[in-house]
Design a protein around this nucleic acid. Structure first.
Lengths: 193, 193
DNA sequence: CCTGATTTGGAATGATCGGTATAAATGGTA
DNA sequence: TACCATTTATACCGATCATTCCAAATCAGG
């Protein structure tokens, strides 16, 4: 089995992400991770160095491959306002299905590790700021075409939206009733029109 | 030293809360807890039964003595709209000071334990629903006196407010810039007038 | 069919986990 | 002062923690 890796690194990272996502960083033991990743101890420490480094790798991968990709996907074939609405609808619709009540990986990690882990905190803050920037761009574009009212300050509104984004993800994970999530998004739509 | 407890149970719970609040449930070891509570193992298991039972006790105590008390305090000498504004201002002002960047104990626990701990989930859901009810009452009262616009649905708005509440607490713990927190609250004030 | 670089599974590491057991210390009562 | 219920401090429990280590297994190049 020499000369090349016997397992798919990307697939292993994907599975590690799911374990961290479901139970959190501290509660995910190395045994849990190795089992879900389908590799053995030797391979793990050779390839990923440590549990902490694994988390950083997984987090950066999620940020690039999922968070940013979602923002781009939601813009396709949509006006700015439609893009914002579609994003928030997608967030609360993820509640249905087998992976429900998991919330957002980034938000979960932010709350658990940010205060004690500067490297995580930096990744989280850049991601949050980037989301806020995305909101700001959509709001400004929507205000120019007239589909979003201009009597609301774009900067303040984008800050409220990032707060709403994070809040919704917590409520989803905490198991809040679907009616509450839907109502919150509905109110948001009203404000944007 | 017999005949009566040698330590203040309430004081011990207060200190336990601070430890859970700072590092979370999983990351708080029994050694950490005993040290911060200032009691020994025997006394602990006699009085509090287990780490898990301690968390439930602390959580219920926080809910009754701090969350509910804050809602009542904020209503004193204030109109409904003023009460809502004062509450959100207080949330983001807690960032300053030595206990900053801790967020809300209830929100922290909700995200870490709700998916895996039904007892915690129930306490959290009742607390969130009670906060939402508080928001709804203030909105309706404010709409009757005319200080809050009636073109916004009170139910939807209260759902958005509980989402904002939770979201702000996460951003505080994640270390978001004060400007973002202030802007989000400012936007909220605009919507309420 | 060797050789040797590489990965494998799993044993072993010391530390720490939550929780229990116990014996010494305590101080009001008799 | 002898008694005794109670709390104290600490030794100890098996389990599990993240990590290290190593011999056995593997297979391309020679």
């Amino acid at each position: 089995m020499p000369w090349e890796k016997q397992f798919d690194v990307d697939e292993a990272l994907e599975r590690a992400k799911n374990t961290f996502w479901t139970v959190g960083y501290e509660a995910a033991s190395m045994s849990d991770l190795l089992k879900s990743m389908g590799i053995n101890r030797g391979s793990f420490y050779d390839t990923f160095k440590s549990k902490h480094d694994l988390m950083l790798t997984v987090l950066r991968r999620y940020d690039a491959n999922e968070r940013r990709v979602l923002l781009e996907a939601v813009k396709l074939d949509r006006t700015p306002r439609e893009a914002l609405v579609a994003l928030f609808r997608a967030l609360v619709d993820d509640t249905r299905g087998p992976l429900s009540h998991q919330g957002c990986f980034l938000v979960n990690v932010a709350l658990e590790l940010s205060p004690s882990d500067p490297e995580v905190a930096e990744i989280v803050q850049i991601a949050f700021a980037d989301n806020e920037q995305f909101f700001l761009e959509q709001i400004r574009a929507g205000q120019q075409t007239g589909e979003i009212p201009t009597d609301l300050g774009a900067e303040e509104l984008s800050c409220m939206l990032i707060t709403q984004y994070v809040g919704l993800m917590v409520l989803v994970r905490a198991g809040s009733p679907q009616t509450v999530l839907d109502a919150a998004v509905e109110q948001l739509e009203k404000i944007l029109s």
